[in-house]
């Protein structure tokens, strides 16, 4: 499989200046999305998922945010170097985002049409020259694509007149209206009830399959990425800690954090609720040295407190940032590794 990389992120470090110091949030994120690939990104609240995406789209509020280092390439081009105007086009046609909260993403004082039509119009120089009627037709089609009934009437409706599920569909329609190559969906449906979430996700899945778009699906619900993605990244406290084909991670999670997370989810098969992972996500003002997971890790070794683990390739396409999988470091990690793998 030699798929072209579409988006490449290397060593991205992002912080926030706050009263009392600097929050060191993203601690050298490495992340790749190939053309046509559906990639999942999971991790708990506050681990830096949204911050990573905002940096990619260059919508990180600066200040308080600041990018310390890193490269973000889209089609091989360094996004941090492109001009603002060009970035707007990339956001229009290259990369679209569906935000976590559909209520906040839509402006309550404008109708759906007043919000959707400009998105289509300003997506490209060609679209800008299209007559208003054609733009309207495209807007109607975008709403029809997300199975919304009566799209003509919907264009005149205000967001409050729509249910949560309908608003999320509008956001999906808006994000896909410009036919982006890469769609970033940040917790789509988290705020929705499970039966409505299931409808929205099935629809999203079908639409991106049809268009062969690349997708980054962000969630903290593990079951959702299992259904919808080819490959998975697990994030903890500003670091990618594991990546592998989705099926593989679910059958054979290797990083102690991934293992703890999978274990913690209550299962329909019963058997009680696992105790979860002790402790909590670190304070980004003073993050732990070495591996940021070490204060919570049942396998932590001396080296974990001193050095930050890099990605070790355990099997083709399965990489883990954990010293247990460093085969070069010799004897000290071997017993713990065995235990972790068991």
């Amino acid at each position: 499989m030699t798929r072209q990389p579409l988006l490449e992120i290397e060593n991205l470090r992002v912080g926030f200046k706050v009263y009392g110091g600097e929050l060191h949030v993203l601690d050298g994120v490495d992340f790749v999305v190939n053309k046509g690939e559906k990639v999942g990104l999971v991790g708990e609240t506050g681990c830096g998922k949204t911050t990573t995406m905002k940096a990619i789209l260059r919508i990180l509020p600066q200040p308080p945010g600041f990018i310390e280092s890193g490269v973000i390439r889209f089609h091989g081009r360094d996004l941090m170097q492109v001009k603002d105007r060009e970035m707007r086009h990339i956001r229009g046609q290259g990369i679209s985002m569906i935000f976590q909260d559909p209520t906040a993403a839509l402006n309550p004082v404008f109708t759906i049409g007043q919000q959707l039509e400009p998105v289509i119009k300003y997506a490209s120089p060609e679209n800008r020259r299209l007559p208003r009627k054609v733009i309207r037709q495209k807007a109607i089609q975008a709403l029809r694509d997300v199975s919304l009934a009566d799209p003509e009437r919907l264009l005149k409706a205000y967001p409050v007149q729509l249910s949560g599920g309908m608003r999320q569909r509008v956001c999906i329609g808006m994000a896909l209206a410009t036919n982006p190559e890469l769609l970033i969906a940040d917790e789509p449906g988290t705020s929705l009830d499970v039966t409505i979430q299931d409808q929205v996700l099935r629809l999203l899945h079908q639409l991106v399959e049809e268009r062969d778009s690349s997708v980054i699906l962000i969630t903290h619900t593990l079951g959702i990425v299992r259904q919808m993605t080819d490959r998975l990244y697990v994030m903890y406290a500003g670091n990618m800690v594991e990546t592998a084909p989705t099926r593989r991670i679910f059958t054979n999670p290797l990083h102690p954090y991934t293992q703890g997370l999978m274990d913690a989810v209550p299962k329909l098969t019963g058997g009680g609720v696992a105790h979860g992972i002790p402790g909590r996500i670190p304070d980004y003002l003073h993050p732990p040295t070495g591996c940021r997971f070490h204060p919570r890790c049942p396998h932590a070794m001396d080296i974990c407190r001193q050095k930050k683990p890099s990605f070790y390739t355990v099997e083709e396409a399965h990489q883990v940032a954990c010293f247990l999988y460093d085969t070069s470091s010799g004897a000290d990690s071997a017993p713990a590794r065995k235990e972790a793998l068991a």
Partner: peptide, 8 residues
């Protein structure tokens, strides 16, 4: 709560 905390 996050799922890693829920179990406790």
């Amino acid at each position: 709560l996050d799922v890693s905390i829920q179990g406790k």
